[in-house]
């Protein structure tokens, strides 16, 4: 199995990671090896097997609708990279929606 540079770039883009041109071969190979490992299992028939998302508990407990969290903005923003007027600041967003 081989993974193209374009595939690696597509996935990196989704994950917001930059892959330098010099790294593309390595990342493509890493990805291919993990997929190859898995592709060996192709012969195992899993049709009709219910996917397992959670190993132990069966269903969700529900929380009563009460306000339990107090918000200490100063404490929560202590390590924030950039704050102005209580807002997190990022470079200007060109609104897509």
């Amino acid at each position: 199995m081989s993974i193209s540079h374009a595939e690696v770039e597509r996935v990196a883009r989704l994950a917001r990671l930059r892959i330098d041109p010099g790294e593309l071969d390595d990342r493509a190979r890493d990805l291919a090896r993990i997929l190859e490992l898995f592709d060996r299992l192709a012969a195992i028939d899993t049709r009709g097997v219910e996917p397992l998302s959670h190993p132990v508990a069966e269903s969700q407990r529900l929380r009563p609708d009460t306000v339990t969290e107090s918000v200490d903005r100063a404490a929560l923003q202590q390590g924030a990279p950039e704050i102005e007027d209580g807002m997190y600041v990022v470079p200007r967003v060109i609104e897509p929606r």
Binding site: E84, D85, M87, Y88, V89, V90, P91, R92, V93, E95
Partner: peptide, 15 residues
């Protein structure tokens, strides 16, 4: 909510 006015060349984020 993103606020585009009043943050210079940036955008403010109110969560």
């Amino acid at each position: 909510r993103s606020v585009h006015e009043g943050f210079g060349r940036g955008t403010g984020i109110d969560l």
